[in-house]
Simulated assay, not measured.
Amino acid sequence: MSANPDQKLRDKDQTVLQQIHSGNNDTQQITEATTLSNREVNYCLTKLQDHDLIQVHKPEGMIERTINGQKRVFEHPKQAQLTNKGQEHLSENPPQNYEDLSHKELVQKVRTLEKDVEELKTSLDTFREQVQKRL
């Protein structure tokens, strides 16, 4: 299943791109460093490659790593490397760290999040009422 290059990047895709940039450049490393599943990481890699932000290759052979204190040997996972376009994307879209926001930006962010939560609550209440009427 190939990702549509016109699709906007999701937070998960941005996370994987940032992981590759920081040196976690294979599926196992990205999965271990994030809360993403192996399947999610693979989907992100496909999508990022379709956007020409990374190049993915699968090295031959086996690899030995220590995972959770145990030595493991497994087939070499897919590896990714940023393209020039990927580097540009990261420089234009740096990760949003709350520590880097000004007081005004934090207030604005909190207000936006509170508004979104209220809208979700209203939608959930409406949905709940609709379900109860049908039961």
Results as ranks from 00 to 15, higher is better:
A80P: 04
K85I: 05
G86I: 07
T126R: 12
R39Q: 10
G23V: 03
N68K: 14
H21Y: 15
S37Q: 07
I20T: 05
K85R: 06
L106N: 02
T112I: 04
T46W: 00
L106T: 02
T126Y: 04
M1N: 05
N93H: 14
T31R: 11
Y98S: 03
D11T: 13
E75R: 15
S2N: 13
D50L: 08
S102W: 03
T31L: 01
P59N: 07
H89I: 05
Q130Y: 09
L36S: 03
L124D: 04
E75W: 06
T27R: 08
K109Q: 12
K8Q: 12
L48E: 10
V73C: 09
H103Y: 09
K78G: 02
E99W: 01
T112N: 04
N42V: 11
Q96G: 02
M1C: 03
E92W: 00
D11I: 13
L36W: 00
D100Q: 09
L53A: 00
D6M: 13
P59V: 05
V110C: 03
P94T: 04
D11A: 15
L17V: 04
Q29F: 04
K85N: 09
N25C: 05
K133W: 06
F74Y: 13
F127D: 00
T31V: 12
E40S: 12
L48R: 08
H103N: 05
K12S: 15
A80G: 03
T126F: 06
K12E: 14
Q130K: 13
S37E: 05
P5M: 08
K47F: 07
Q108D: 15
S91W: 11
N38H: 00
L48W: 04
Q132P: 00
E105F: 01
D6P: 01
Y98V: 14
S123V: 08
L120H: 06
D52F: 14
H21W: 12
E64Q: 06
V73R: 15
A33K: 15
L120D: 06
P77A: 03
H21V: 06
S102L: 09
N68P: 06
E88D: 13
K133L: 10
N97Q: 10
R72H: 13
T83C: 04
V56F: 03
R128W: 07
T34M: 13
L101M: 12
N25D: 14
A33G: 06
N4R: 10
V56I: 09
P95S: 06
M1L: 09
R10Q: 15
D6W: 07
S22M: 13
R134K: 11
E118M: 13
L90T: 02
A3C: 07
R39K: 14
L36Y: 04
E64S: 09
L36I: 03
L113D: 11
L113E: 11
K133R: 13
V56M: 05
T35D: 04
L113T: 08
N84C: 02
K109G: 01
Q29R: 12
T126W: 07
L106A: 03
Q87M: 04
I54Q: 06
V107G: 00
L124K: 10
T122H: 07
R111T: 03
L9A: 14
N24M: 09
L17S: 08
Q28L: 11
T27E: 07
D6K: 11
T15M: 05
L45F: 12
V131H: 00
T46E: 05
S2P: 02
L135W: 08
Q96V: 15
A33S: 14
T122K: 08
T66N: 07
D100H: 10
V41L: 11
K115G: 01
Q14N: 10
